[in-house]
């Protein structure tokens, strides 16, 4: 259970940059806002967020290493959660 919470905390720490980027870039092509938003949320957004972590908060990975969680598994789980979120968003948009 602790590991699930740690994976969630890592994912949560990527969301601010991910969502800010995704919303901002989707608004640039406003007529396609709802089409582009889920795409950015599972591609450019997380990549930018992970890149930011890599250059400015690299040491925080030790917080997870010390609980036997590797960087690869953190990234894989976070990307999977982004994929699920985007999928749910697409479904919601399709119904609206």
């Amino acid at each position: 259970m602790k590991k699930v919470r740690l994976f969630w905390e890592f994912h949560r720490s990527t969301l601010l940059i991910n969502w800010s980027f995704s919303i901002a870039f989707s608004m640039l092509i406003f007529p396609l806002f709802f089409t582009m938003l889920p795409i950015y949320m599972m591609t450019g957004g997380p990549i930018l967020s992970l890149f930011y972590k890599e250059i400015s908060k690299k040491n925080e990975y030790y917080f997870y290493y010390n609980r036997s969680i590797s960087k690869v598994s953190l990234i894989v789980v976070s990307m999977a959660l982004n994929l699920i979120t985007s999928f749910v968003l697409v479904k919601i948009i399709a119904h609206v």
């Binding site: 720490s13 925080e60 290493y65 036997s68 590797s70």
Partner: peptide, 21 residues
Amino acid sequence: KPYNARNVLSFLPQNNFLPQN
């Protein structure tokens, strides 16, 4: 990679590692 093994090793790096937020 000993850090991958459960409850074996902990490491305090030179720089702070706790998430600031």
